[in-house]
Nucleic acid binder design. Structure first.
Lengths: 165, 165
DNA sequence: ATAAATGGTTTGTGCTTCACAAACGAACCA
DNA sequence: TGGTTCGTTTGTGAAGCACAAACCATTTAT
């Protein structure tokens, strides 16, 4: 038995994650509705912003949802020009899905609108802690190993003026 | 305009949280099924472990779900003796809900069973980071302000022998 | 060149979760 | 006594989702 003081590997985050996600989703739905979006859309847009130019089945893979349902989701997003399907030049069966400028803008709007919802749920955390949380979640979601902040920041700061919500 | 270098308040965690929660839930369902539990049960048990001896409508409040559906949830949990409803001595309309020893044990089992599911989803994070994530989530979920680790650890370590999964 | 496999699409079915409403008994409070 | 609150039951309806079947266009293998 090692001399390590306490075993802290018992802490399982699953239920907490589920709980918080639900609480945010409840608030998000009402906030997102006026924008014509549902939480699911937001997740898809976020994934596309993180790694665009992706095939539909790759998207279905990272979203871990059935391909047929991805079709419907993309139909809705494309109907509002938030997303674009282009045929891949290498394999013309494939659709390359990408966020349109309008989509990026709408996503930013939605995130702004969600600010209060998140503030409500994550109110117990200080700004720095929320940033830590964000970074941990992002890394877990993208599967990326340790990554300097620079990429994310560079990504978020390509919009010059409208930093304020 | 202050001299702060970059605005990092734009990072919204909602979609990421939703995404990760979904990924964990997908895996959890199959793992939890043999134990006769569903993710929702786990959340309820976790809440009860964190703050037991609570009334049903208080539980409905923190769970943010309809009271009528809480009844059904508790019925299922009580049918397996994981939870106990006792009438409150002060107000005999009220039910005081508490985790039974069997419930605590089952919860621990479930968390163990979920280890692999979480490992899969949170694989990109190192153990220390996962612990940080857990602590942030826990604080956000319980609404508790900055809190020393001691409580959580003391809570988790009342079981002496079975630390290993 | 012909056959088989693949990416995407459409349609339909069914399950599960959930919110919400209505009506009830029991207990509390005025 | 009457109004109110807690828990309960039952039912309804919407939404999210997985899954299957059938289809076209295209790619790949034989």
């Amino acid at each position: 038995m090692p001399a390590v003081p306490v075993d802290q590997s018992e802490h399982r985050s699953g239920a907490l994650l589920d709980h918080l996600a639900r609480r945010i989703r409840l608030r998000s739905e009402s906030v997102l509705a006026p924008l014509g979006l549902r939480p699911r859309h937001l997740v898809a847009l976020t994934v596309l912003r993180a790694g665009g130019g992706i095939s539909q089945q790759a998207l279905a893979g990272t979203l871990e949802m059935d391909g047929t349902n991805v079709v419907g989701l993309l139909n809705e997003l494309e109907a509002e020009r938030l997303v674009e399907r282009r045929r891949s030049p290498e394999d013309r069966r494939r659709h390359v899905v990408e966020l349109t400028p309008a989509g990026a803008e709408r996503l930013a709007e939605a995130e702004c609108a969600l600010a209060t919802a998140e503030d409500e749920v994550l109110g117990a955390l200080e700004p720095a802690e929320r940033e830590t949380l964000y970074e941990l979640l992002r890394r877990a979601a993208t599967g990326t190993g340790t990554l300097s902040c620079t990429e994310a920041v560079a990504d978020a700061d390509t919009r010059p003026g409208d930093d304020r919500c």
